[in-house]
């Protein structure tokens, strides 16, 4: 049923990376308890990582049989990792770093404004409105209804919340 798919740029390299990872993990599994016993904590990880090593070797051999265009970085950045994907990964990374210190509300709002502006390209007012709306819904669902305590950071949320509660109650 499946016809032969030509190789993607970087596929062979990725295969070797996975093999390297498997070998590293096999060594780590061996470090847990060596070949001491069938029931040792390391036995199962060793068996599984051995399967990883073997199957990644087989995959590499299979991949060699498939046709490939000559590798060019240009193709890689067109088909596999276009700039927008790389930038997005970077932005989420920054989000996670700032979350604890700056707090959820500010980082999430900034995240939504930046990414929606970047991807949707609407007017600034529209972007801000949509971001605020999305944030309010997520905040209500997680923080208020299901009492997940999100990182506070710079905005003293719990003080504000208890002030509101006092006003109501």
């Amino acid at each position: 049923m499946s016809e032969v798919v030509p190789k993607q740029p970087g596929e062979t390299l990725f295969g070797f990376l996975m093999l390297a990872l498997s070998l590293f993990l096999f060594w780590q599994s061996y470090e847990i308890a060596g070949f001491s016993a069938l029931s040792s904590p390391g036995a199962f990880p060793m068996a599984v990582s051995a399967i990883m090593v073997i199957s990644s070797c087989v995959a590499i051999v299979h991949d060699f049989k498939r046709p490939a265009d000559s590798f060019e970085w240009q193709h890689f950045f067109e088909r596999i990792l276009p700039p927008v994907v790389g930038v997005m990964i970077g932005i989420i990374f920054v989000f996670a770093v700032m979350l604890e210190t700056v707090g959820f509300l500010l980082t999430a709002f900034a995240f939504l404004v930046v990414t929606i502006k970047m991807l949707h390209k609407g007017t600034m007012a529209y972007t801000t409105l949509i971001s605020a709306l999305g944030l309010v819904v997520i905040y209500l669902v997680f923080r208020v209804i299901f009492v997940v305590v999100l990182p506070e950071g710079l905005i003293p949320e719990s003080d504000i919340m208890s002030a509101i509660k006092e006003m109501i109650g």
Binding site: I92, L99, F111, T115, I116, L119, H120
Partner: peptide
């Protein structure tokens, strides 16, 4: 362009 950022945010809050 709007849905994807919201999915990312939902995933992040969900994971947290």
């Amino acid at each position: 362009g709007i849905l994807i950022p919201l999915i990312f945010l939902l995933s992040i809050v969900g994971a947290y």
